[in-house]
Write a protein that binds this DNA or RNA. Structure first.
Length: 295
DNA sequence: AGTTGTCAAGCTAGT
DNA sequence: ACTAGCTTGACAACT
């Protein structure tokens, strides 16, 4: 079981999410920003190893504009050595990696254009993980997409469009239950038709479910991960008190986390903490695990 | 140095 | 009709 956090580390200097405005695009600018992003990514991985945080989500803008027509750089070639070095470092320390294409990636969209751009974005992120030399256990997690007033038709469209994706992409793509539209049950239905693994998100489950027991839902999603996929990943968070439903908490609720671990103790999986204070909560989470003798 | 409007991209629900 | 929220700030122009 590995503990991780998404995209941002506030303890190190620099960021791996640097970008710039489309208006100011130039190949030189892109190279300059990617250079810094990769340097920061290496520093984050280093920090994570030192603190035994062995799961990390890389931000979508690690290569800004990579799926935009304006991008005229063969970045995987240009940065080949650096990417290989980072990937080797990741593999050497058995670090799990994921990426989470953002809300603009909708592969069940009614617009063929949006689907096409979504696939281009997925292909870029997939290529990034490939360029690091990571195996199929490094995943790209997305939501099912929009509902457009007809859930059955939208699920059918997801399944259809999924089938036409490259094998390369299918190897990495996983879906996550969301908090308003597509529940674990909906994801399981899609899994039946596609074999796509499901990331369980406990907070989303609390927001949207089919009145099934949480542990049962968790078990069902865990069983969708096959040998090649690695052990299941989950997203873990809790509701921010007194905030709108679905808001992620600012810092980890250690009692809730301890209870969650006790409940799921018979399973091996990697936990992504979707919590606003990032690595700080990840470090607290490790302390909780220690106190439960899980480390 | 600090503040603020804006940034490639979609969709839904709440106001 | 508009906007917050989503995994989440960062850029760039202004004071």
């Amino acid at each position: 079981m590995r503990i991780g956090y998404p995209c941002i580390n506030n303890s190190i200097d620099g960021t791996s999410n640097g970008t710039f405005r489309l208006k100011s695009y130039s190949q030189e600018r892109l190279i300059e920003v990617v250079e810094k992003n990769l340097e920061a990514l290496m520093a984050i991985i280093q920090f994570n190893i030192e603190h035994d945080l062995l799961f990390f989500r890389i931000g979508s803008s690690i290569i800004p504009f990579a799926s935009h027509p304006v991008c005229d750089l063969d970045w995987s070639k240009h940065f080949a050595r650096k990417l290989t070095n980072i990937g080797d470092f990741i593999k050497k320390h058995n670090i799990r990696i994921s990426m989470h294409p953002d809300q603009f990636v909708v592969i069940n969209s009614l617009s063929a254009d949006i689907v096409q751009r979504s696939v281009a974005e997925l292909e870029y992120q997939c290529k990034f993980l490939n360029s690091l030399g990571l195996e199929a256990d490094a995943k790209l997690q997305i939501h099912v997409g929009g509902m457009y007033g007809d859930k059955q038709a939208s699920i059918a469209r997801f399944i259809e469009n999924y089938k036409s994706l490259s094998e390369n992409l299918k190897k990495r793509l996983v879906i996550e239950n969301d908090d308003r539209l597509y529940s674990v049950q909906d994801c399981l239905y899609i899994h039946e038709a596609t074999n796509i693994p499901i990331i369980f998100d406990n907070l989303h489950f609390d927001c949207l479910n089919n009145h099934e027991n949480m542990l049962d839902a968790f078990k069902l999603t865990a069983s969708t991960w096959k040998e090649n996929d690695g052990i299941p990943m989950i997203d873990y968070s809790t509701q921010e008190p007194d905030a709108r439903v679905g808001n992620h908490t600012k810092t980890i609720d250690e009692q809730h986390f301890a209870n969650f671990l006790k409940l799921t103790k018979d399973f091996d999986f990697d936990i992504m903490l979707e919590i606003k204070d990032k690595e700080l909560s990840a470090l607290k989470a490790r302390e909780v695990m220690k106190s439960l003798n899980l480390l």
